[in-house]
Amino acid sequence: MELFDTATVLTRVLTSGVVMSIEKSDRELPGLERLLTKQTGRAKAVLLNSRSAAVHAALAGQGIGHGDRINRPGLGRQDLAFVNWLGISVIEEGVEGGVEEGPVAFDHLALDPENAHQLGEWARRSTAPALVVDLTGLGFGPAAAVLTDDADLWARAERLKIFGAYDLRTMWTQEEADSNLVPGVQFNYRLSPLVAACVRMALSQAARPHTTSGATK
């Protein structure tokens, strides 16, 4: 993204005065959620402040936790270490111990300025219940998202975040009608609106060809 565009986005958000993720009047985080769901064709987006947070949300969203195991081939060293820290064991593709493992727990991809225009195409190929999108490579600091069509997965993933979207809608009341949705451990995995605004601009620009104004012709 051009420095001028980044400067414009940052100045716009600062001028609004809303830089806090738990501000009810924040428009940047919902804006990025809308863009991601539109570009990926998924119903729901969960925004997070790092790739590892997104991996956690993708798993916790499916009720996968300590002592469980997942089928997720091809994870890198960092992802593997993190999943193991969660107490979840990772099984390589196919058959282990003669037992056929289930579907892949989540798909994952990492975006940067060069490949960000491929998000939609990659998302169409993904078949896992959760798609982890690492947005860190876009250049605004650690950022990520989980995309899903599963409303329960989204609900549990949001509850992993202290002051997640659910808490904001209930004005922070932790009453739960469904005991399956009661959070366990919670982290502040919230993304900053300033970062979200920059990511949104970068993704928007990647999705459409850059055009010059008439004045420059």
Binding site: S50, L80, A81, N84, W85, F140, G141, P142, L194, C198
Partner: peptide, 16 residues
């Protein structure tokens, strides 16, 4: 580092 946890602060937050 050992557990692959990304707790890094964004430069945007830090500059502010």
């Amino acid at each position: 580092e050992r557990h692959g946890i990304d707790y890094r602060m964004s430069w945007v937050a830090a500059a502010f």
